[in-house]
């Protein structure tokens, strides 16, 4: 394997590790903490706002600097792979609403679900199984 390829996979792996360390330090791997953010009129815990703030400061900087990169391409790939869709339709809004319902009921979204695999918590594994099933259902019924 060429050294560029090694760096490529090392950095992807590192990015994954950093992501879950960030989730862990911020408390977002704890479903109760996420759900309490959504519990405005009950046990409200606004911590998630501060997670978003921290993540957005660095991410905004990253996407700002992206256009100023020399050669206009990432360090280990030939091109940037960016989302191109701009349409706001029922698929987007209805999908987001459905996601919000599931996120609130469980306190879990895809990142923390995978990061929590090592707990082998049966409720978490059940969630992951159902989530993967949901992804397949969308694929087979909408070709999306």
């Amino acid at each position: 394997m060429s050294s560029l390829k090694s760096i490529k996979f090392f950095t992807v792996f590192l990015s994954g590790i950093l992501f879950s360390i960030g989730l862990g330090v911020s408390g977002m791997m704890n479903p109760y903490k996420v759900r309490n953010f959504l519990d405005l009129f009950g046990n409200w815990d606004p911590s998630l706002i501060f997670v978003m703030l921290g993540a957005l400061i660095i991410s905004t900087l990253a996407f700002r600097l992206q256009s100023r990169m020399p050669q206009k391409k990432p360090l280990c790939e030939d091109e940037f792979c960016m989302p191109t869709a701009t349409v706001i339709d029922w698929r987007l809004t209805g999908g987001a609403a459905l996601f919000g319902v599931g996120w609130a009921l469980s306190g879990v979204c895809p990142g923390p679900a995978i990061a929590n695999i090592g707990t082998m918590n049966s409720f978490m594994l059940l969630f992951i199984g159902a989530m993967v099933l949901g992804i397949f259902l969308v694929r087979f019924f909408t070709k999306g």
Partner: peptide, 15 residues
């Protein structure tokens, strides 16, 4: 958990 997981899988898949 099953309902939540399905909602998250279908919802993020759609959006």
């Amino acid at each position: 958990q099953i309902i939540a997981g399905l909602c998250v899988g279908i919802g993020t898949g759609l959006s």
